[in-house]
Write a protein that binds this DNA or RNA. Structure first.
Length: 841
RNA sequence: GCCGAAGUGGCGGAAUGGCAGACGCGGCGGACUCAAAAUCCGCUACUCGAAAGAGUUUGUGGGUUCGAGUCCCACCUUCGGUACCA
């Protein structure tokens, strides 16, 4: 099945053939590694700035080096960026095209728990596999800039950036409600909790507050939203980021609690105009006022309800939209305008983490409040009318804008006017005002894990016995309220070597057991290091900056290196990172902007997501489905160029598309035909038609590469190969242009052909071919003749033919007369070179 | 539900408002071969027709236009994301 089978013995040495004497097949097992070695030896792809040149920074989302090795999904985006990198080099740009490893993460730690192998060891092995696989595909990375997020030389600067955040008050500690599973001794994500039990092992999970490090990304919410206008990103991704930030304008309104002097329930609403329609107020179960205001008669039921909610994960709480649950507190809220008293309820349809954790319920004009009011038989009042008239009992909530009714002085106002009027009045009576709320929450930045960057913070330790040693179990208290940053010159703070990576019964994580690492004495006082580590996102937040200056030991990157390459001109990666990674990286970038380390407000100018490659069964590739394709197998059988060409020929880069083994044959043939036709003896001189096709192909391929329409570029090159194959002789001019065009896509076969065409040096820096527009056009073209919009005939006409000539030719065209006979031509549409349309009747 | 993307031959897909189906896979026929594979050449949307030819066709229904896969309106389906955000 391979393309390099030895030819079978032939009975005759001069069998007739349309080809030149049987040229040897393209032997990828010999040619591919030879060129890869040569590029490496000659440092062809080392990124360097030269005076007078423009630059391009072409970035891939770097991979997590998993134990499974490279997946066919990886080379899709990587081939796309490699084509552009090679193309831009040939166009004379200085190109920075780096690769590295996002190497912290859970799988290596899980593997360590199961086998005792240190995660660093697993990671190094996996990286070696990934590096080998990427090199075998012939990507033109500048390997001298390779970075690894787990390398102490990298961790140092990740920690340094954390300290910048800490010093600016953007990193802080807070008690956060997490999913704690005591049986597994670990904190679980929402996805890992099903029906209150751990997905693994089905152990009970409770929501419990745990001390966590937080990053104040909300302080940047507005800038993260506004600066989206500065980037060239897919619409869907921009929308996803906007929705995630979730800015909404509204009002905060204070309701006094009856009988609790001074206690207010603040609510957030986007519809202050419906204030007169409030029939009850709802607190989230975790709202601090719940315990305070619940009356003795309702205490037992409310406590029970709050406890029940705590057992449900966020996911479960939000899963069932229909069934509303809740409990009355017995307390009453005082309406800020009317003084009317409405009941205060606790219900988990109100989220503790959004707005103020409390809402004013307007069942007439909010679907959720309506459902709740129906469930608990609470009054529903119409205060916004579509037409200004009063209506009786509402069948459903009316949530659109309209005219305010039953709203006293505000009646008759439109929704927009009423909102303004209510907000003005709220300010007058000191019960609230307009406010902007965000869905975006601060970022929980700590993990109770081993294999991550240690957070470079320590805390004083208070010992019961001043001579005690906390490492030996002396009773002590860690003063988490007094965090102290590690001195910059002491970075990196390295992970201790552990042999046991299992999580313990202590939510502080495995590092808590490394007592010799954790506790240390300074000036006679004991201190304890932070035992939480950073999440995997941390390293990927700034790796694009480290690529600028990856070996710098004195700073994360130098200003010179920054100016030389930033910012990122093209960033390619999966849409699964549309929100989190890209938002976190933008956030860190803006912090670095504020401290003057970077000069662009946004790091990634243009972003493209490659579409997922599905298995042959049209399902997501996965081990369990057994539909995974291994790039090693494809390269072994057909060579690197075929895998690259196939993945680009499958369809548009952004589209989701299934792997189809049979289709590979098409690009194998293309590669072999290219090899065969360009391997013939080239002659000088070229016929007109061939020259036109060559120029048109150069134009098409150039434009398609710039537009990242690689599938159609390959198709155009196939057309040229097919044309050249049919020629009796190979024009050198055509062969050279074709080989250069192919080079970014299939660099190995292109280099080898370039050599055979008589060029001793690599084509990697050869100028990209140019086309002459005048040579692309044909003077006489065949055009369709339509009668009343239907094609009835063909006509050969000069592009410069006038309208009269066109009319005459069209009427005379074969097959047209039958449809025009006896009818008058009422109108003639003539688009030179395109169409003649006779409108008759 | 909301947001986003997409619906075109047997299949992957191509078409600045101007001959729908480029290119490729597969299929059919032919050349080469003792034969097969590989390779090369030709044909290949559907219906009716012996053929010439005619008609139909880009998820559905309307509309704009001399002309619509492409633009507008309404709807259906699939995929991806999101989930009571007040």
């Amino acid at each position: 099945m391979g393309g390099n089978d030895a030819p079978l013995p032939m009975s005759s040495d001069d069998r007739p053939t349309t080809r030149d004497a049987a040229a040897p097949r393209y032997d990828h097992t010999e040619v591919d590694p030879r060129w890869q070695q040569r590029w490496d030896d000659d440092g062809v792809f080392r990124a360097e700035r030269r005076p007078g040149r423009e630059k391009r920074y072409v970035l891939d989302m770097f991979p997590y080096p998993s134990g499974a090795g490279l997946h066919v999904g990886h080379p899709e985006g990587y081939t796309a960026t490699d084509i552009l990198s090679r193309f831009w080099r040939m166009k004379g740009f200085d190109v920075l095209h780096p690769m590295g490893w996002d190497a912290f993460g859970l799988p290596a730690e899980q593997h360590a728990i199961e086998t005792g192998t240190h995660p660093a060891q697993t990671t190094h092995k996996n990286i070696a596999t990934f590096r080998r696989q990427l090199k075998m595909l012939g990507f033109s990375y500048d390997w001298s800039r390779e970075v690894d997020t787990t390398d102490p030389g990298y961790v140092k600067w990740t920690q340094w950036i954390f300290l910048q955040l800490f010093q600016r008050g953007l990193a802080y500690q807070d008690e956060v409600s997490v999913n704690w599973c005591s049986a597994l001794g670990t904190v679980l994500s929402n996805e890992e909790v099903v029906d209150g039990l751990s997905e693994r092992g089905h152990h009970p999970v409770v929501r419990t507050p745990l001390r966590q490090w937080m990053l104040r990304i909300t302080a940047y919410a507005d800038r993260l939203l506004e600066d989206l206008s500065l980037v060239d990103w897919p619409d869907g991704t921009l929308t996803a980021q906007r929705n995630w930030i979730g800015r909404s304008e509204g009002a905060e309104i204070k309701f006094a609690v009856d009988g609790h002097g001074g206690a207010d329930v603040a609510v957030f609403t986007t519809r202050p105009d419906t204030l007169l329609g409030v029939t009850y107020v709802v607190l989230a179960p975790e709202h601090p006022l719940v315990a305070k205001i619940t009356t003795p008669a309702h205490k037992a039921a409310v406590d029970e309800y709050v406890a029940r909610s705590a057992r449900r994960s966020d996911r479960d709480r939000t899963a069932v939209v229909k069934d509303k649950t809740g409990a009355p507190t017995g307390a009453l809220a005082v309406h800020p305008f009317t003084g009317e008293k409405v009941p205060i309820w606790v219900a988990d349809y109100v989220l503790g983490g959004y707005g103020t954790g409390a809402v004013m319920a307007v069942p007439g004009h909010d679907e959720r409040d309506f459902a709740f009011a129906k469930a608990f038989d609470l009054p529903i009042v119409e205060v916004v009318s579509p037409d200004g008239a009063l209506h009786g009992a509402l069948e459903e909530a009316f949530v659109d804008d309209g005219i305010s009714v039953r709203s006293g002085e505000f009646s008759g106002l439109t929704t927009a006017d009423c909102m303004k009027a209510v907000i003005r009045r709220l300010a007058e009576v000191g019960r609230g005002g307009s406010v902007v709320s965000y869905k975006l929450r601060d970022w929980v930045f700590s993990r109770q894990r081993y294999w991550g960057e240690p957070i470079p913070i320590y805390f004083p330790v208070d010992l019961e016995d001043p001579n005690g040693d906390p490492r030996k179990g002396a009773k002590h208290v860690v003063r988490f309220d007094q965090p102290i940053p590690v001195e910059a010159h002491e970075l990196p703070l390295r992970l201790p070597d552990l042999v046991d990576f299992r999580p313990g019964d202590d939510p502080a994580g495995p590092l808590a057991r490394a007592v010799d690492w954790r506790y240390f004495q300074k000036d006679g006082r004991w201190y304890a290091r932070e035992t939480n580590t950073m999440p995997q996102w941390a390293g990927s937040c700034w790796y694009y900056l480290r690529f600028l200056d990856p070996r710098n030991a004195d700073e994360a990157f130098s200003p010179e290196a920054y100016d030389a390459w930033m910012n990122v001109d093209l960033y390619v990666g999966g849409a699964e990172h549309a929100v989190l990674h890209l938002l976190y990286a933008r956030f860190w970038h803006k912090v670095l902007f504020d401290i003057g380390r970077v000069k662009h407000p946004e790091p990634f100018r243009k972003l493209v997501h490659q579409g997922m490659i599905l298995g042959e069964d049209n399902e997501k590739m996965s081990k369990s489905r057994g539909n995974v394709v291994n790039p090693d197998d494809i390269v072994k059988a057909y060579g690197a160029d075929v895998l690259r060409l196939y993945e680009m020929f499958m369809g548009p880069l952004e589209a989701v598309k299934p792997w189809q083994k049979a289709q590979i044959q098409g690009v194998v043939r293309f590669r072999d035909r290219l090899w065969a036709v360009c391997g013939r003896d080239a002659v000088d001189g070229i016929d007109e038609e061939t020259r036109r096709i060559v120029h048109k192909t150069i134009r098409k391929v150039t434009r398609d590469v710039e537009a990242m329409a690689f599938n159609t570029a390959i198709s155009a090159m196939m057309v040229l190969v097919n044309h050249l194959t049919a020629l009796p002789e190979l024009p050198r001019e055509a062969a050279c242009a074709l080989v250069l065009l192919v080079a970014p896509f299939a660099p190995h076969v292109a280099e080898e052909l370039w050599l055979k065409l008589g060029h001793p040096t690599s084509l990697a820096l050869e100028p990209w071919p140019t086309w002459d527009e005048a040579l692309c056009v044909e003077d006489v073209v065949e055009m369709a003749v339509q009668v009343n919009g239907k094609v009835r005939g063909k006509v050969r006409l000069s592009r410069t033919a006038g309208e009269d000539e066109a009319r005459e030719a069209a009427l005379a065209a074969e097959g047209v007369a039958a449809f025009t006979a006896g009818k008058a031509v009422r109108k003639l549409i003539y688009v030179p070179g395109k169409i003649v349309n006779l409108v008759v009747g």
